[in-house]
Protein backbone atom coordinates (compact mmCIF):
# COMPACT_ATOMS: atom_id res chain seq x y z
CA UNK A 1 0.00 0.00 0.00
CA UNK A 2 1.01 3.60 -0.63
CA UNK A 3 2.14 5.31 2.53
CA UNK A 4 2.87 8.83 3.68
CA UNK A 5 6.49 7.70 4.14
CA UNK A 6 6.70 7.42 0.37
CA UNK A 7 5.49 10.97 0.10
CA UNK A 8 8.29 11.98 2.44
CA UNK A 9 10.77 10.40 0.02
CA UNK A 10 9.24 12.35 -2.88
CA UNK A 11 9.61 15.52 -0.83
CA UNK A 12 13.29 14.93 -0.23
CA UNK A 13 13.90 14.15 -3.87
CA UNK A 14 12.02 17.27 -4.96
CA UNK A 15 13.80 19.60 -2.58
CA UNK A 16 17.05 18.67 -4.27
CA UNK A 17 15.50 19.45 -7.61
CA UNK A 18 13.94 22.80 -6.73
CA UNK A 19 17.21 24.65 -7.01
CA UNK A 20 17.78 23.15 -10.40
CA UNK A 21 14.41 24.23 -11.70
CA UNK A 22 14.89 27.94 -10.91
CA UNK A 23 15.36 29.96 -14.04
CA UNK A 24 14.96 27.02 -16.39
CA UNK A 25 11.16 26.84 -16.43
CA UNK A 26 11.06 26.94 -20.16
CA UNK A 27 7.63 25.79 -21.25
CA UNK A 28 4.15 26.26 -19.92
CA UNK A 29 1.23 24.04 -20.87
CA UNK A 30 -2.16 25.58 -20.07
CA UNK A 31 -5.33 23.47 -20.29
CA UNK A 32 -8.78 25.10 -20.43
CA UNK A 33 -10.75 23.60 -17.57
CA UNK A 34 -14.04 25.51 -17.35
CA UNK A 35 -17.44 23.79 -17.74
CA UNK A 36 -17.07 23.88 -21.54
CA UNK A 37 -13.60 22.32 -21.47
CA UNK A 38 -14.54 19.65 -18.93
CA UNK A 39 -17.67 18.66 -20.88
CA UNK A 40 -15.63 18.42 -24.09
CA UNK A 41 -13.03 16.10 -22.55
CA UNK A 42 -10.31 18.31 -21.04
CA UNK A 43 -9.82 16.14 -17.96
CA UNK A 44 -8.23 13.12 -19.71
CA UNK A 45 -6.20 15.55 -21.86
CA UNK A 46 -4.73 17.15 -18.74
CA UNK A 47 -4.07 13.74 -17.14
CA UNK A 48 -2.24 12.64 -20.29
CA UNK A 49 0.03 15.71 -20.21
CA UNK A 50 0.83 15.11 -16.53
CA UNK A 51 1.58 11.42 -17.09
CA UNK A 52 3.58 11.84 -20.31
CA UNK A 53 5.66 14.74 -19.07
CA UNK A 54 6.50 12.85 -15.87
CA UNK A 55 7.27 9.70 -17.88
CA UNK A 56 9.55 11.54 -20.32
CA UNK A 57 11.39 13.26 -17.45
CA UNK A 58 10.47 16.69 -18.73
CA UNK A 59 9.26 17.96 -15.35
CA UNK A 60 12.25 20.27 -15.03
CA UNK A 61 11.43 22.27 -18.11
CA UNK A 62 7.63 22.07 -18.27
CA UNK A 63 4.91 23.36 -15.96
CA UNK A 64 1.25 22.51 -16.42
CA UNK A 65 -1.55 24.77 -15.30
CA UNK A 66 -5.28 25.10 -15.77
CA UNK A 67 -7.32 28.07 -16.84
CA UNK A 68 -10.98 29.03 -17.18
CA UNK A 69 -12.97 29.65 -20.34
CA UNK A 70 -11.09 31.62 -22.97
CA UNK A 71 -14.18 32.10 -25.13
CA UNK A 72 -13.72 29.55 -27.90
CA UNK A 73 -15.89 26.85 -26.34
CA UNK A 74 -16.62 25.20 -29.71
CA UNK A 75 -12.92 24.38 -29.98
CA UNK A 76 -12.53 22.81 -26.54
CA UNK A 77 -10.54 21.03 -25.22
CA UNK A 78 -8.07 23.86 -25.78
CA UNK A 79 -4.40 23.65 -24.79
CA UNK A 80 -1.98 26.56 -25.02
CA UNK A 81 1.77 26.13 -25.02
CA UNK A 82 3.93 29.08 -24.11
CA UNK A 83 7.65 29.24 -24.45
CA UNK A 84 9.92 32.17 -23.66
CA UNK A 85 10.73 34.17 -26.77
CA UNK A 86 8.28 32.29 -28.98
CA UNK A 87 4.72 32.90 -30.06
CA UNK A 88 1.98 31.11 -28.10
CA UNK A 89 0.65 27.97 -29.78
CA UNK A 90 -3.05 27.15 -29.33
CA UNK A 91 -4.06 23.54 -29.86
CA UNK A 92 -7.77 22.85 -30.26
CA UNK A 93 -10.18 19.91 -30.03
CA UNK A 94 -7.56 17.95 -28.15
CA UNK A 95 -7.71 14.30 -27.17
CA UNK A 96 -5.34 12.16 -25.06
CA UNK A 97 -3.89 10.74 -28.31
CA UNK A 98 -3.23 14.23 -29.69
CA UNK A 99 -1.73 15.23 -26.33
CA UNK A 100 0.78 12.40 -26.59
CA UNK A 101 1.87 13.64 -30.01
CA UNK A 102 2.19 17.21 -28.75
CA UNK A 103 4.45 16.01 -25.91
CA UNK A 104 6.55 13.93 -28.29
CA UNK A 105 6.81 16.34 -31.23
CA UNK A 106 6.40 19.82 -29.77
CA UNK A 107 7.54 19.67 -26.15
CA UNK A 108 10.29 17.11 -26.68
CA UNK A 109 11.06 17.68 -30.34
CA UNK A 110 10.52 21.44 -30.57
CA UNK A 111 8.28 21.17 -33.63
CA UNK A 112 4.71 22.53 -33.52
CA UNK A 113 2.07 19.96 -34.53
CA UNK A 114 0.46 22.31 -37.05
CA UNK A 115 -2.52 20.10 -37.88
CA UNK A 116 -3.90 20.41 -34.32
CA UNK A 117 -3.57 24.18 -34.01
CA UNK A 118 -6.30 26.80 -34.01
CA UNK A 119 -4.55 28.52 -36.93
CA UNK A 120 -5.14 25.38 -38.96
CA UNK A 121 -8.89 25.45 -38.19
CA UNK A 122 -9.49 29.11 -38.91
Amino acid sequence: MKSLAELQAIKEKMQNKVALRDGSGEMRVVVGMATCGIAAGARPVLSTFVEEIAKENLANKVTISQTGCIGICQFEPVVEIMEAGKEKVTYVQMTPEKAKRVVEEHIKGGKVVAEFTLANKA
Partner: peptide, 27 residues
Protein backbone atom coordinates in the same frame (compact mmCIF):
# COMPACT_ATOMS: atom_id res chain seq x y z
CA UNK B 1 -3.91 18.86 4.61
CA UNK B 2 -2.27 15.61 5.71
CA UNK B 3 -0.22 15.44 2.51
CA UNK B 4 0.78 19.09 2.84
CA UNK B 5 2.02 18.46 6.40
CA UNK B 6 4.40 15.80 5.05
CA UNK B 7 5.40 17.69 1.90
CA UNK B 8 6.29 20.99 3.56
CA UNK B 9 7.28 23.46 0.85
CA UNK B 10 7.01 20.94 -1.97
CA UNK B 11 3.89 21.85 -3.93
CA UNK B 12 0.95 19.47 -4.31
CA UNK B 13 1.04 19.95 -8.09
CA UNK B 14 4.51 18.43 -8.40
CA UNK B 15 4.26 15.68 -11.03
CA UNK B 16 5.45 12.93 -8.69
CA UNK B 17 2.99 14.02 -6.01
CA UNK B 18 0.02 14.04 -8.41
CA UNK B 19 0.95 10.57 -9.64
CA UNK B 20 1.34 9.40 -6.05
CA UNK B 21 -2.15 10.70 -5.19
CA UNK B 22 -3.51 8.91 -8.24
CA UNK B 23 -2.00 5.59 -7.11
CA UNK B 24 -2.99 6.20 -3.50
CA UNK B 25 -6.65 6.57 -4.49
CA UNK B 26 -6.44 3.69 -6.98
CA UNK B 27 -5.23 1.34 -4.25
Amino acid sequence: RELRAVLGDVSLDTFEVILWIQDYLKE
